[in-house]
Design a protein around this nucleic acid. Structure first.
Lengths: 154, 154
DNA sequence: ATTTTTGCAAATCATTTGCATATAT
DNA sequence: ATATATGCAAATGATTTGCAAAAAT
């Protein structure tokens, strides 16, 4: 069988495989960068797919819940999504601020912080979000000026 | 002089010290938890302060740009802010998902990840965002069930 | 006096929801 | 058949913007 598609994930979770859902899955699979809900709407229109706005949002919600997508807030403040491939392991994404491409980064070092935080602050850390932004190798190679490191982050 | 207030920060940055701005600064200073723009609007109304919605947003924007506030996206999806005290050093916030209180955590271990990421992915990491959520010591003591660690985070 | 800031109301924008219809199972 | 999902359009909610009036320098 094909590796493991978003459609498979929806299927495995017991959702019905409808035309709109297959199409949303296809649109996402064809992207290698982050995207917003409206990006997908535009993609769909461009390909002549008729998918309702609400359906796109509902699909994104389900796929996020299934761990197939991660919601990220871009530095610009936009709400975007990136596909998790593979979706199971704990990881983070680095998003290129220039072209939008993203890759996953395994080996999260945050875990080791939580004990330390508990000890120092008394807070029991349950979850965390990490969003990394920078410049991808392609954009670096193309001579574009890298995004300058920001002085005060997070 | 008083330690260093949000008002001082606005002043130092060359902004005019208007009544609404002083009031927003006061409202924020009186909070020890995260807050949304609407929270501040409500606080203001409660105290009989007449501050326009737009002014609140404009003030939050300036204070964020000055590094006095951090914008955080709560697990619920809400856009909130937390005060940075002190505002200068690189740090992150742990937010209590139960009561909203937050504290800063110094000693970010992300920095050490960036070289590794560069080596493994070719991405030049410029900025990062870390948002930590959990349960604060007070809430833990009060016997409330801690927020369960989430399986797939970020 | 001059420039900045305010506050309103309108505009924008993203996201959600109700509900009758259509579709997958 | 029957439960689920769609798609519209309307509702919601947050944030932004234009602009004349008000306030700070």
């Amino acid at each position: 069988m094909a590796p493991w598609t978003l459609t498979d994930a929806l299927d495995a979770a017991g959702y019905r495989l409808t035309r709109p859902r297959r199409q949303v899955a296809e649109l996402i699979a064809d992207r290698d960068d982050h995207f917003t809900a409206s990006d997908l709407m535009a993609d769909a229109r461009r390909r002549g797919m008729a998918i309702g706005r609400a359906t796109v949002f509902r699909s994104l919600e389900k796929l996020s819940a299934l761990g197939q997508l991660e919601r990220v807030r871009l530095p610009t403040g936009e709400q975007a999504y990136v596909a998790c491939r593979p979706p199971d392991a704990h990881h983070h994404h680095v998003v290129c601020g220039r072209c939008g491409r993203s890759v996953e980064v395994a080996g999260c070092t945050i875990g080791s912080m939580t004990d330390e935080i508990r000890r120092r602050t008394g807070y029991d850390v349950a979850t965390h979000h990490v969003e990394l932004f920078g410049t991808c190798p392609e954009c670096l190679a193309s001579g574009a000026d890298p995004i300058p490191p920001s002085g005060h982050v997070s």
